[in-house]
Design a protein around this nucleic acid. Structure first.
Lengths: 162, 162
DNA sequence: CCTGAAATCCACTATTG
DNA sequence: CAATAGTGGATTTCAGG
């Protein structure tokens, strides 16, 4: 169930850091009932092993710039796996595309894009369609309201078996 | 273009903190060419004004637990605005639903859900459909690959006018 | 793998420009 | 508003169990 190289103390550390990445090491050590030095060593270890992939400030971007956020589903025509590679490289290059997932189902990618307005999105969508990546169709949705903003994953599944 | 209560120094601070929330105040001050005290005052101000909404460690959740991540589009039947409120409260309560956005277009919500397996997702989807919230249809996509993981928003739009 | 102490280094405040 | 300097406290290393 739990990977054998992660114990409950690690989980507690990760849970706290998911909620408050800027907590002091001392306070963190208190919350997980460890001495500061032991706690720090675990945190460094979690970083080195790639279990913590980064620490990010969450910014209210809509209060800083004009921001229209688009969730776009991209469908490919021919499924040449190579064309995925080209497409991937392209979207990694575009700062407006802030997130991209390959998904199962009727569509191939789900993108999250930030633009100033709908016209800018039109330009980008046209670019993706016309770039000869094999993109056949783009379905876009505009984000109206962040009802539940992401604030970390549950690291233990709460749901119990029947 | 830029809100008058945010200057370029604030933007640089936000940009650095988006990439590395655990940087020390001194190093941050260096990077934005400010004294530590001036820098710290700005950071506290950005927090107090709600422009920074939190600091989060990014965790490689798939290396910690069995994780199937679902992107689900939820469509309502009758558009009673009240039923949205009930639905909202419900999803805020469910730890498996880690993000929820109201969107425009053919569907009403986009959810990001983490479950152990497809069966668990089936249970949750059935719950949402049967809970008398007015949910009419759920289209689900399973996340196959995080091609471009979210790592902060561009705070200045790079695209220039034609 | 932990604790505890010692030595840095940093956050934060007061003071001043 | 920003810089400088001081002090209380935190981070980090290391010795030892």
């Amino acid at each position: 169930m739990l990977p054998k190289d992660i114990d409950r103390t690690d989980l507690r550390i990760l849970n706290v850091l998911q909620q408050d990445a800027r907590i002091t090491n001392q306070a963190l050590a208190d919350r997980v009932a460890l001495s500061p030095s032991a706690c720090l060593r675990r945190v460094r270890d979690l970083e080195a092993r790639g279990l913590i992939t980064g620490y990010r400030a969450q910014v209210a971007v809509d209060r800083i710039r004009t921001a229209t956020i688009v969730l776009a589903q991209v469908t490919f025509g021919r499924h040449a796996l190579d064309s995925f590679g080209e497409f991937d490289r392209r979207i990694l290059d575009m700062p407006e595309i802030v997130e991209a997932c390959r998904i199962s189902g009727a569509h191939d990618y789900m993108l999250r894009v930030i633009v100033n307005d709908v016209h800018e999105w039109k330009d980008i969508a046209r670019m993706l369609l016309g770039g000869d990546y094999g993109v056949e169709r783009i379905v876009s949705h505009f984000l109206m309201d962040e009802v539940k903003p992401f604030s970390g994953y549950p690291l233990t599944s709460s749901r119990r078996k029947a």
